[in-house]
Design a binder for these strands. Sequence first.
DNA 1: GTTACTGCGTC
DNA 2: CTCGGAA
DNA 3: TTCCGAGGACGCAGTAAC
Length: 513
Amino acid sequence: MLKGMLLERVAETSRRVAATTKRLEKTDLIAALLGEARGEEIEIAVAFLSGRARQGKIGVSYRTLHNLGVNAAERARLELMDVDRAFTAIAGVEGAGSERVRGALVAHLFSRATAQEQQFLSALLVGELRQGALEGIMLEAVAKAAKLSLERVRHAAMVAGDVTAVARAALETGEAGLADYDIRLFRPVQPMLAQTAEDAGEAIEDLGEAALEYKLDGARVQAHKSGDQVVIFSRALNDVSAASPEIVEAVRALPAKDLILDGEALSLKPDGRPQPFQVTARRFNRKADVEKIRKELPLTPFWFDLLYLDGNLLHEPQARRFAELQKVAPVIPHLRTSDAVAAREFLEEALERGHEGIMAKAPGSEYATGARGRAWLKVKRAKTLDLVILAAEWGSGRRKGFLSNLHLGARDTEKGGFAMLGKTFKGLTDEMLAWQTREFLKIEIARDANTVYVEPKIVAEIAFNDVQISPRYASGLALRFARVKRYRTDKTVEQTDTFQTVKKIAVGGIGGE
DNA sequence: GTTACTGCGTC
DNA sequence: CTCGGAA
DNA sequence: TTCCGAGGACGCAGTAAC
């Protein structure tokens, strides 16, 4: 009887992958390991080295792992298959007392692992492997190990919606094995993604003639239909049919037997304007009272692409896919133009109607599953505020040793003091990180475990997309997608924006109270 | 029963 | 979701 | 250009604790 691959082999590879910053070296290390794996082990190894369990999230928290209190094994004996079976068992526990049972199962697994293996398993389970390689590098490694072209492997994985099975097929049966991974009904494909453009003008400049569409602020949905059978998938390819019965019904009624649609679903107010995102979000991942909530907050799907209609359309140009789509389903508001002025007007119209912005698509482009290319561009509009930094949290990973995540405050001219509007760590260069760490420590007024509180005197220009109602912050409001544009050392606190200004933006955006 | 907290998925 | 850094 | 990782805001589900 052959011995299976040891967990140690994977943990050691992960450690070495993390140790180098060179992409090719990472690829080589992973490819070498894949060459040694057999059968199901291939799928397990691919999942682990992509930073996840085959079972997905299995409900093991940071806290569970820290309260284990088990010793490490002396010798590495755990096989990949053992670990995979243990994960399946752990994921299956539910109900009252489940946290204790799960903890016991995790403890037993960990007691059989060496110290290094324990470290690897911990990182894997909390999703913090941070070896500088995820699915992108994995695809390259699979291609290398199977001696196939990267494009071939990537396409199969994206159309299959999953790398693990494709990796196994590629390694076991090569080119022939990948032939099965064509688009197929009820097997979701990775949705095509977009890059950002500054404004409508840049999008037209990039694309020439472009297919413009409203960008709606809801959730991405992929609908599969064959006859009466309909399944709706989310962006992460979860089956969300149960939570969105009205979408299922709408798709079932479409005049085509077999199709796959791509679109965005959101809830509209009675006047046709969109609900704020956080309101539409009440429909996502929902199990309780679906029939009741669908009456209060019905979801409306807006379709913008057709991937399959009695056959594969992925490789057809966008213009043809959209034309076919219009014959069978209600489509998103759209405009085909090469005129920058018309594009700008279209953007203004979308914004005026309460939407997020527009998309601009290359009419000649195929549906590049899972790719974030320049064939699709998104144009949104950010707002900015000058805010005061109230505190900063110590960073982790490559930001360890630097003050990173910033607490943002706006002057409250009524109550005095500052209203906290959330936090951001985005938009900071290494230079800014170093600067703020230095400067903040000079004006420190207090600290706790992870946070340094500072005198409220540093001003930063903060970009954001929306103001949301916040159940978390005392101010009652929080910024959505906040990021730092620059520090305003030229501005005093008295010159910053006030909480009262923020409230006005909120009322404008949310629709008033 | 109700609340608090964490995990997960959406953006 | 956004951004900056590295290859 | 592509990939990665630094983490942000919500809301719901599920358990544990009260």
